[in-house]
Simulated assay, not measured.
Amino acid sequence: MTVETVSENRSFGGRQLVCRHRSSETGTDMRFSLYLPPAAESGPVPLVWFLSGLTCTEENFTTKAGAQRVAAKHGLAVVAPDTSPRGETVPDDADAAYDFGLGAGFYVDATAAPFDRNYRMASYIETELPEVLAGAFPVDGRRQSIMGHSMGGHGALTIALRNPDRYKAVSAFAPIASPINCPWGQKALSGYLGRDEAEWRRYDACALIEDGHRVGDILVDQGLADGFLENQLKPELLEAACGKAGIPLTLRRQEGYDHSYFFIATFVEDHLDWHAERLTSEG
Rank of each mutant, 00 (worst) to 15 (best):
A72P: 03
Y119N: 10
K64C: 04
A113H: 02
L76T: 08
A65S: 15
L51K: 10
A71C: 15
P114I: 06
N60F: 09
L51F: 12
T57F: 03
K73R: 13
T63Q: 13
N60Y: 10
A110I: 05
A97C: 10
A65H: 09
A72F: 00
G103Y: 06
D109M: 08
T111A: 13
Q68N: 09
E58R: 03
S52K: 02
G87Q: 10
G103V: 08
A65L: 09
K64P: 00
P91F: 00
T63N: 08
R120N: 15
A65I: 08
Y98W: 15
P91H: 03
A96M: 13
A80E: 04
Y119I: 08
L51C: 12
D116W: 11
V70L: 04
A113Q: 07
D99I: 01
V79E: 08
T57D: 13
V70D: 12
C56G: 08
F106K: 00
T83P: 01
F106H: 03
A112T: 09
D93E: 05
R69W: 07
G105I: 04
F115C: 03
A113K: 12
T57V: 02
G103N: 06
P85Q: 06
L102N: 02
N60R: 05
R120V: 08
H74N: 04
P114H: 00
Y98P: 01
K64Y: 13
V108L: 14
V78N: 07
